[in-house]
Write a protein that binds this DNA or RNA. Structure first.
Lengths: 189, 189
DNA sequence: GTCTATAGGATGATAGAC
DNA sequence: GTCTATCATCCTATAGAC
């Protein structure tokens, strides 16, 4: 356990509060109080509330982008690529579960450059999954249903996984990966 | 086109703004300005900001509860019941697409009684889907995978459908129902 | 039904002492 | 690195004129 820097401590405290009430309902005073200091002291470590949000969101967004780049440049069938996407998505969810609510619900409160960066990364991510699905359909690995519905179903499930992971007493990650791949690829009937 | 009451107009204007920025980032001044009046005028039609949120959320939550009650009391196999759930979920999404962001992201800002009512309805809803899935597994209609993963996958997809329905140029509802049932039940490979 | 004026409090952020 | 004190602004909501 290396001692977390004060800045890191602010970010993690804030992410816990954002998770419960959302970015706009959490004040600098709330964050400071949760750390046992005064709001003005926070400004010795960060430039403002915006920096907390953008650090939180962009750090995780870059993880997703990295994971996707590895999958895209890997060899294998389209189905294998989707399996890899599901798996690294679960890994990131487990590692950054506290930050994901902000990424899903508070990204619109980013300003200018940060907002643009995030939206670009998110669009690229989605587009990469779309390409994998379409290649899979072309190669007859994936059923030729509406590709957007398949894309939407997979991404919706993965993006809100953090809501369930915590609630269900932190399921075993490998069991979760196996069941998730199975449910999303083979369906339930 | 019957002329919407002023109160209804407030609710729909607010839901549009909540959708873009979230409950806490929208002020009474914002809502009033979008209607071309002053914030103080709003209070002649509603008791406060909280009433807007609770009307918005509880109206839709009751629709989901009604839909679920009809499915639960209907005859048919478990798979048929899941199909019905998917279908009425899509119907509600199409009808109330402006209100769903608040239901998904701002319910925690409800107060006391309203919050309790909402959480109860939401838990009951989830529990009813869970029962249908477990009955389906017992009857060998549904594969005996982790029931919670199946539950989570279906509900995640349905609950965030509003995000996609608008973006994709409002897909035809019947095509959407058919493809969604197919993807969620039979999978993609 | 809408307005102006305003109360009463919370908010993000800064200055300067220790 | 934290504090107190404070600023300027925004917020929800009310009172009362028209």
């Amino acid at each position: 356990m290396k001692p977390a820097s004060r800045k890191t401590e602010i970010i993690t405290t804030a992410s816990r509060l954002f998770k419960e009430k959302g970015y706009n309902a959490v004040s600098m005073r709330d964050i400071a109080q949760a750390m046992g200091i005064k709001a003005s002291s926070l400004y010795n470590h960060i430039s403002g509330k915006q920096e907390i949000l953008s650090t939180l969101i962009l750090t995780v967004a870059r993880e997703f982008t990295n994971g996707m780049e590895q999958v895209v440049s890997s060899k294998g069938t389209s189905v294998e690529k989707i399996e890899k996407i599901i798996e690294f998505h679960i890994d990131i969810t487990v590692t950054y579960s506290e930050a994901l609510p902000a990424l899903n619900n508070d990204w619109m409160h980013l300003k200018e450059d940060d907002l643009q960066q995030f939206v670009n990364m998110r669009d690229d991510y989605e587009q990469n999954v779309r390409i994998v699905i379409k290649e899979g359909i072309k190669a007859n690995e994936i059923e030729a249903r509406h590709p957007e519905v398949i894309l939407f179903s997979i991404l919706s499930t993965l993006r809100t996984l953090y809501l369930w992971y915590e609630k269900r007493g932190k399921l075993d990650v490998n069991v979760l990966k196996r069941d998730m791949v199975s449910v999303l690829l083979q369906g339930i009937v």
